[in-house]
Amino acid sequence: HAATELTPEQAAALKPYDRIVITGRFNAIGDAVSAVSRRADEEGAASFYVVDTSEFGNSGNWRVVADVYKA
C-alpha cells in the first residue's frame, strides 16, 4: 500500500519520525508527490507531508522535502 499524503492540519497533529529529500525532474507537482509517496513507502512510512518544493536553477530539476510519519 502506498503512503498517503496528509493535509496541513493532519501533519500538524502528528510528529514526523524522519524527513526525506528527493531531487529529480518532475513535469508537475503531482509527479513529485508520487515520487515522495514511493520513497516514503519504501521507508515503511504510513503517510507523508510535503514541507517544501524548490526548483534548482532553470534546469527543470526539483528538490522536494517531506516529513514522513509511521501511523
Rank of each mutant, 00 (worst) to 15 (best):
D41C: 15
T4M: 13
E9R: 09
T53W: 15
A40D: 02
A40F: 02
S59N: 12
S54H: 14
Y17T: 03
E5I: 07
K70T: 08
E5H: 10
R19A: 03
E42D: 09
V21S: 05
V51D: 00
V68Y: 07
F48R: 01
D31P: 03
V65R: 03
H1T: 09
D18M: 15
R63K: 10
K15A: 08
K15D: 07
N27F: 09
F48M: 02
Y69E: 00
T4Y: 14
N27T: 12
N61A: 10
A13Y: 12
F56M: 13
A35W: 06
V64N: 01
G30N: 10
I20F: 05
A11L: 03
N58V: 11
V33R: 08
V51R: 05
T53H: 11
G60P: 05
D31T: 05
A3V: 11
T53D: 02
A66L: 06
D67Q: 06
H1I: 07
A46G: 11
F48H: 01
N58C: 11
G57V: 06
Y69W: 01
V33E: 04
E42Q: 12
T53N: 06
A46C: 13
R39L: 12
P8K: 15
Y69T: 00
P16R: 05
T4K: 14
S54A: 12
A71Y: 12
E5D: 03
A66D: 00
V50F: 03
A35K: 04
K70W: 09
I20H: 01
A46Q: 11
T4F: 14
L6A: 03
V50K: 01
D52K: 09
A46Y: 12
R63E: 07
D67I: 09
A35G: 03
A12Y: 07
D67C: 10
V64S: 00
A32G: 03
A45W: 14
S54L: 13
G57S: 09
W62K: 03
V68L: 15
Y49F: 14
E55F: 14
A12L: 10
E42K: 10
F48Y: 08
G60A: 06
L14K: 09
D52Y: 14
S34R: 15
R63Y: 10
R38C: 08
D31R: 03
R25A: 09
L6D: 01
A12H: 08
K15Y: 08
S34N: 13
I20N: 01
K70C: 12
T4L: 13
G57Q: 07
V33K: 13
I29T: 05
G60T: 05
F48E: 01
N61R: 10
R19Q: 06
E5R: 14
L14C: 12
D31S: 07
G24I: 10
G44E: 04
E9M: 11
Y69H: 01
F56T: 09
Q10G: 05
Q10A: 09
V65W: 04
L14E: 05
E43D: 11
I22L: 08
S37G: 15
V51E: 00
S37I: 10
S37W: 06
G30S: 14
P16F: 04
E43W: 14
A13H: 13
A11Q: 03
A40I: 06
R25K: 12
T7N: 07
A40P: 02
H1D: 06
A71F: 12
A45Q: 03
R39N: 03
D18Y: 10
N58L: 11
T23L: 11
R25C: 09
S54W: 12
T53C: 15
I22D: 00
A11G: 02
F26K: 01
S54P: 02
H1C: 14
E55I: 13
F26A: 01
G57L: 07
S59G: 11
F48V: 02
S34C: 14
D67R: 03
D18P: 01
Y17H: 04
E9Y: 08
A45R: 01
K15E: 10
P8L: 13
A28S: 15
V64Q: 00
A45M: 10
R63C: 11
G24V: 07
N58I: 12
A32L: 12
G24D: 03
R25T: 09
E42M: 11
A28Q: 11
P8G: 11
A3I: 11
D52G: 09
E9C: 13
R38Y: 07
Y17G: 02
V36Y: 00
R38Q: 11
S47T: 06
T23A: 05
